[in-house]
């Protein structure tokens, strides 16, 4: 009796310590985010030297400024168009390819899969110059289509791998019975496989969307007119070489992050299964 009590006491202490640790860690993790809120709602242009998370004089000045005195909605539209187009094109191309890689054995399959993996190792700087020249040659500099083109191809390898991993987990028997019933390959793909793969498609689309929504370097290199900026480029310029307007940046950062964070949390339950589906198998 005594012994059992003792152990549960020890466990309780450990539990409390763990709680405390996690709590501290979570505060540390969330603090920078809250700090951004403080600056966004604060009245100074710059930063403020205090640990407190509440601005001295809360105001919506920064939001007002960025929303109505800057072409924020044009930037938002640019970012939305680029990110949405990227994820749609990326998903369409990756779904068919991922399905083929998952279901069929054809010469060049292994080489193709491996080469997709290797492209992830290409340093961005090596690709940037040729991409710049290609986009320039196509006359798509300062044009959203150029960004979409570049983003969707860079998103494809990752998407193919993820979708292939998910397709692998769908039992083959479903297709076999459909085949026997006389369905065509194309019909099976659209009517059976795609509906079953919805969660994976969602996660993959989210990743493509996020990559495009968050990409900074290529956008900064390709887009030179203020009105063709995407949000990352526009935000960066608030605290870049020529300006130090942290309030404006913080307000913009909140506006940019909220939709993407919301999307992320809505889809996060698929995240783990999507990410580990391909790898846990082996």
């Amino acid at each position: 009796m005594e012994k059992k009590n003792k152990r549960s006491f020890r466990e309780r202490v450990i539990g409390a310590l763990l709680q405390f640790f996690i709590l501290l860690f979570t505060i540390g993790t969330v603090y920078p985010v809250l700090w951004v809120f403080k600056i966004a709602f604060g009245s100074q242009k710059g930063l403020s030297l205090s640990l407190s998370l509440f601005p001295a004089q809360p105001t919506l000045e920064n939001f007002n400024h960025i929303l109505f005195e800057k072409p924020f909605f044009i930037w938002l539209l640019n970012s939305l168009i680029v990110a949405a187009a990227t994820s749609v094109i990326g998903i369409f191309l990756a779904a068919t390819a991922g399905y083929a890689f998952s279901r069929f054995r054809f010469p060049g399959r292994t080489a193709g899969l491996l080469s997709f993996l290797i492209t992830q190792m290409f340093p961005g700087t090596l690709m940037m110059i040729p991409l710049y020249l290609i986009v320039n040659w196509l006359g798509l500099l300062d044009n959203l289509a150029g960004l979409v083109l570049v983003y969707s191809t860079s998103a494809i390898p990752f998407s193919i791998w993820m979708l292939k991993g998910y397709f692998d987990t769908i039992p083959k028997e479903l297709e076999e019975s459909a085949l026997i019933d006389g369905a065509s390959r194309t019909l099976i793909f659209y009517k059976i496989i795609l509906p079953l793969a919805k969660p994976a498609l969602a996660v993959t689309a989210l990743f493509s969307f996020m990559t495009a929504w968050n990409e900074y370097i290529l956008a900064a290199t390709f887009m030179n007119r203020e009105l063709s900026y995407t949000l990352p480029v526009a935000l960066r310029n608030f605290v870049g070489q020529f300006a130090q307007d942290w309030g404006l940046f913080a307000a913009g950062a909140i506006l940019v992050s909220i939709p993407i964070v919301a999307l992320f949390f809505i889809l996060q339950k698929y995240l783990v299964s999507g990410l580990t589906a391909g790898s846990v198998k082996g």
């Binding site: 191309l93 990756a94 068919t96 390819a97 997709f116 492209t119 040729p130 570049v150 494809i156």
Partner: peptide
């Protein structure tokens, strides 16, 4: 389609 995209915008630039 994926291959064409990869070759044109990943392999060739590389």
């Amino acid at each position: 389609p994926a291959m064409v995209g990869m070759i044109a915008l990943v392999l060739l630039p590389f």
